[in-house]
């Protein structure tokens, strides 16, 4: 390497002095913080779920609830694994993998709702009015906001590659978890209601995740001292 391309001794001294002046958390400390944030996030989400009425099976058979909740849980678990990172990489998964996961999940959840309607036609054909759809959809978004923040906060300022895409994936992950809660708390089983009030809000959470991801996750220069 030529001399002009080597960093100056002055830069080295500056960086080392700044590092000595500002201690940073080690892996053990960081892990404790992550556990704390995850625990607080999970507790707050459950508390909000209970505060908003908790579980309400309505007239739905247990098998239908188990089917929808079970598949929702699988989708949420897969998305959580995908969006939480990649083995041996500090930079997460490739953009295409995350985008594919985001794009595929909503249709999968919609198909799940339709399959449930076909499998249990008596309950799936119920009429639900627009106001109920809107209220249920708003609750779904609200309940998804907490897990979204719990997923975003530990990763703040850490994505130099594609923060908006990572944020969108985390938004969809929060959305999948909130769909599980929606199938537990919402007594309505109509396909249209499930799609409009349970699945469409995941798209809103994805968009919210993309915006918050860009704002929260991207790497920023530290202010001059």
């Amino acid at each position: 390497m030529s001399q002009e391309r080597a960093p100056s001794a002055d830069l080295r001294a500056r960086v080392l002095a700044e590092v000595a002046r500002t201690p940073s958390p080690t892996r053990a400390v960081y892990k404790r913080r992550i556990v704390l944030v995850a625990a607080v996030g999970a507790l707050a989400t459950v508390a909000l779920f209970v505060a908003m009425g908790g579980m309400s099976p309505g007239t739905r058979p247990v098998e239908m609830i188990a089917f929808t909740v079970g598949f929702g849980l699988v989708a949420a678990a897969v998305l959580t694994r995908l969006s939480s990172g990649q083995r041996h990489s500090m930079l997460g998964r490739p953009r295409t993998v995350l985008l594919t996961a985001v794009v595929v999940t909503a249709p999968v959840l919609a198909v799940l709702a339709l399959v449930a309607t076909i499998a249990w036609p008596v309950h799936g054909g119920d009429h639900v009015d627009g106001g109920t759809n809107l209220t249920c959809g708003a609750i779904t978004v609200l309940q998804g906001a907490l897990p979204l923040m719990a997923l975003l906060i530990p990763k703040r300022g850490t994505d130099p590659v594609h923060p908006a895409v990572t944020g969108a994936a985390l938004g969809m992950t929060a959305g999948a978890w909130t769909v599980v809660m929606a199938y537990l708390r919402c007594p309505h089983a109509a396909a249209v209601h499930c799609i409009v009030a349970h699945v469409v809000p995941t798209l809103i959470l994805t968009a919210l995740g993309a915006v918050l991801g860009w704002l929260i996750l991207r790497v920023r220069p530290t202010p001059d001292r």
Binding site: V15, S24, P25, R27, K31, M90, G157, T222
Partner: peptide, 9 residues
């Protein structure tokens, strides 16, 4: 400095 601050991660 980013690497230093994020070492716990």
């Amino acid at each position: 400095l980013q690497i230093h601050r994020a070492r716990g991660r």
